[in-house]
């Protein structure tokens, strides 16, 4: 089965599977779904103010040509790694800021297109990595742990591996 078909199957199958199990177990699908979907509404309202601020700042930096300057500066290094230079700022932003990465990703897609090499690498990077510092801070903070004992460097190794692999995987599956 090609990658294309697997992707087309996944989403409808997930919905059908969940709904069927709910029907078999005689759960009140409708009202459970509605109460869950309301949470999505609250999360979106929570995100909007941050997105307005960060997209304005990133948009200004992009329009002025400053971001292009940064991309050009790192391009030789990126090329050596086989990584699309236009995605490199995203890779650096990803572990630090979720909304910053989302804002950057959205604008990048508009610029290079979803089916380009860079657009695909960016999407894979967004899907396969996580806002590392936030996650670590929440968990260590909640457990009142002060010494990470190597967890942060290891998490950054994971991010780096994910970054390198995102470019390799896109080349493997799409070229």
């Amino acid at each position: 089965m090609s990658a294309f078909q697997a992707g087309d199957f996944a989403v409808p199958l997930a919905i059908v599977l969940v709904f069927s199990i709910a029907a078999v177990r005689r759960k009140d699908l409708f009202s459970i779904f509605l109460s869950g979907a309301k949470e999505g509404l609250a999360t979106t309202a929570h995100v909007l103010p941050a997105l307005v601020l960060l997209m304005t700042v990133i948009g200004m930096a992009r329009a002025s040509g400053l971001l292009g300057l940064l991309t050009d500066a790192v391009a030789p290094l990126a090329e050596r790694l086989g990584f699309p230079a236009e995605v490199l700022p995203l890779a650096l932003l990803r572990p630090l800021s979720g909304s910053g990465a989302l804002a950057f990703f959205e604008e990048l897609l508009g610029e290079v297109g979803t089916e380009s090499y860079g657009g695909r690498v960016a999407a894979v990077l967004m899907g396969g990595t996580e806002t590392t510092f936030y996650t670590a801070a929440v968990y260590f903070g909640a457990a009142e742990v002060r010494k990470g004992n190597g967890a942060i460097p290891a998490a950054l190794v994971a991010d780096f591996a994910g970054t390198v692999m995102s470019a390799l995987a896109v080349r493997l599956f799409f070229q």
Partner: peptide, 12 residues
């Protein structure tokens, strides 16, 4: 839009 799935799984 989901054609990146195998690549995302591999990367993750």
């Amino acid at each position: 839009p989901m054609d990146i799935l195998p690549a995302v799984w591999l990367t993750g």
